[in-house]
Every structure is written in C-alpha cells, then in structure tokens.
Write a protein that binds this DNA or RNA. Structure first.
Length: 318
DNA sequence: CGGCAGGCGGTTA
DNA sequence: TAACCGCCTGCC
C-alpha cells in the first residue's frame, strides 16, 4: 500500500476552482469542505489553498517514493514553475476584453497531464457534457484500471469537517469513492484497452466513442507504446496534425491533447464555447474557425493555450 | 417529443 | 474545402 505524504507550496496566480473547473481535466472534484480531491500520475490527493499556501495530502505512486519525488510531481503537474503574471501582462496588453477574461479566471494554470490520459479523456469528451465525460472516464477506470489502495485514515480529515449526510459529489450517480471506499482506480494502459471489444465497454456508456478508444489504443501499440508516441509528438513540428491520425481525434480533440498532454502552449482548441467567445469578444463569425485560428496565432502566439483557457472560463461565466 | 452537449468520420457538391 | 448528416447517451 502506498504511503501518505503532505507537502506545502507558496503559490500566486493560483486558484484551485479556476484550475479544476475550466474543462482541462475530468478527475478532480470539489468536496463539501472546500477541498479538491482527485487522481493524477497514479497518486490520489486532496488539495486546499488559503492565503497563498497550497497544501497537498496524497498517496505516493509507490511504497519507496521519496518526499522529493512526490513534491516534484505535484510541482510539475500544477505548473508551479511558470510565471503566470508575465503571461497575463503579455496577453492583456492592448486587449481590454482579454484583461476582463483574465480577471475572471485569474488563478488558472495549465496542468501538465499524462498524455495517454488526455488522449482518452478528450476522445470521450466529443459531443458530450462535462458531468457525463467524468462519469464515462470513472467507469472506464473502475472497470479496467489498476486499483490504488488508499489508507482509510486519509479520508477522515474530510469526513470530520462535514456533515455525514451531505450530498457528496460522486461519479455517474455513484457515491464519491473517497467516502465509500479505500479503493481508487487509475487510467487503464493502452494494452488493456486495445484488447477490448465494443461490448466490453457497454457498461461505460461511451456510445459511438467506444470503438474510437479501442482503435486509438491499438494504434498506440502499433507505434510501440505511449512513450515513443510522446517522444515523437514532443519534437513534431505540427503535433495537432499528427494527432489527428488517431481514431476519434479531429482538430479540436487534437488541440486539447497537444495543449494539456504534450505541453504545446501555442495550441488553441476551438470548440462551441470558443466559437461563441471569439464571436462575442472579437466579432469573428461563429463558423469561421480558420479565421479564429489565424487570429489566435497572430495575437496570442505562444500563449494561445493560456488565452483559450481565460476566454473559455470567462465565457462560461457570462 | 425535438434540441442539444466542449466533434468526428464519411459523403456530397 | 465547405456543408451536411448520423451517431450513443442523457438531460431539458
């Protein structure tokens, strides 16, 4: 069983709700006590932030993981080494609307997520809504992922802060795993998904996305696994174009994967929300996606992904 | 009931 | 290359 560790960070330009509720990730949930819980990199964690101090309590990825490795993982995942003040000043210069968007989502950070997780997450996300995306992903993990054994006492902090009969947020109608169980589930490896049939995934309610998931897993294996794919994408000139090779991955999903899973911060995913935002804010016709991409390239450049996050969060609040 | 939700793949003009 | 359609599912 994994160890439990607690680390703290001093943070600025950082707000957990903006980070976990801006559509970039699907496995983090707000708990009634105000903390956020979720899983990343095979580690379960609970986060709280107050007055610029972030506290993370979580399980280690393995029994022999050092505190330094544990700390380093979350530092990287939360992108704590980046100066977001600089990005905001750059994006906001000469753009009053962008400054309003930045104010709305001032604490956003772009998470450095696992490539494979972003691939299957955003394939599932197509033509879908966030609660159902979350439910689908949890169902896939529960059925086909690895189990993480979490010491039960880790849950007590949250329990004692809140009424027992509270309506805990769960996945897909299921009770929240951290009050019901000490078992949590990781994203299944490509090898596992590649061997499934569409029928195997019936219980996950993926609909027509199920075969996409299986075929993409098979394509990853054909390329030698996720590591070679990642190495290739990280040095690719146009990773978005390369990603559309995979089943169920079009321009929008590919942009999300490039941005959140490959660290391509110039990627500018355009979905229906972004089309509305670009119309409302920059008066570009909603069906002119190419024009929007060009605008983003010209005006946001290497910070396109950050601009997209601020605009998206801003638009959802309107 | 139709419409829609953070699209994609395939066909058509 | 742009426009259109069908698609699983769940919710309004």
């Amino acid at each position: 069983m994994a160890d439990v560790m607690t680390v703290t960070f001093e943070v600025k330009d950082f707000h957990l709700a903006h980070i976990f509720d801006c559509g970039q990730c699907f496995r983090w949930n707000l708990q009634p006590d105000g903390s956020w819980t979720g899983i990343a990199g095979g580690r379960w964690a609970r986060m709280t932030e107050q007055d610029g101090v972030l506290v993370i309590t979580g399980t280690t990825a393995s029994a022999d993981e050092s505190e330094e490795e544990f700390r380093s993982f979350w530092y990287d995942y939360l992108d704590l080494g980046r100066d977001y003040g600089k990005i905001k000043r750059s994006l906001g210069r000469g753009d009053a609307a962008m400054r309003r968007a930045i104010k709305a989502g001032e604490g956003i950070r772009i998470l450095n997520q696992d490539l494979w997780e972003t691939m299957i997450s955003f394939i599932i996300s197509q033509n879908n809504n966030i609660p159902r995306i979350k439910g689908c992903i949890e169902a896939v993990c529960r059925q086909f992922g690895e189990t993480i054994e979490v010491p039960v006492h880790i849950f007590d902090t949250v329990r004692q802060d809140s009424p027992q009969d509270h309506d805990w947020p769960g996945f897909d109608g299921q009770p929240s795993p951290f009050v019901e169980s000490e078992k949590l589930y990781t994203i299944p490896e490509p090898e596992v998904l590649a061997s499934l049939t569409r029928e195997d995934l019936d219980g996950c309610r993926l609909g027509y996305r199920a075969p996409y998931l299986i075929e993409t897993a098979q394509q990853v294996l054909e390329m030698g696994g996720i590591k070679p794919v990642e190495n290739h994408l990280r040095q690719a000139e146009d990773p978005v174009a390369e990603l559309t090779y995979f089943a169920g991955v079009g321009p929008k999903v590919a942009s999300c994967i490039a941005l959140f899973g490959v660290g391509r911060y110039d990627a500018f995913p355009i979905d229906v929300w972004m089309r509305r935002a670009m119309h409302t804010v920059y008066n570009i016709e909603e069906n002119r996606v190419g024009e929007m991409q060009a605008y983003a390239r010209e005006h946001f450049g290497k910070y396109g992904g950050f601009a997209q996050q601020y605009l998206f969060y801003y638009m959802r609040g309107l």
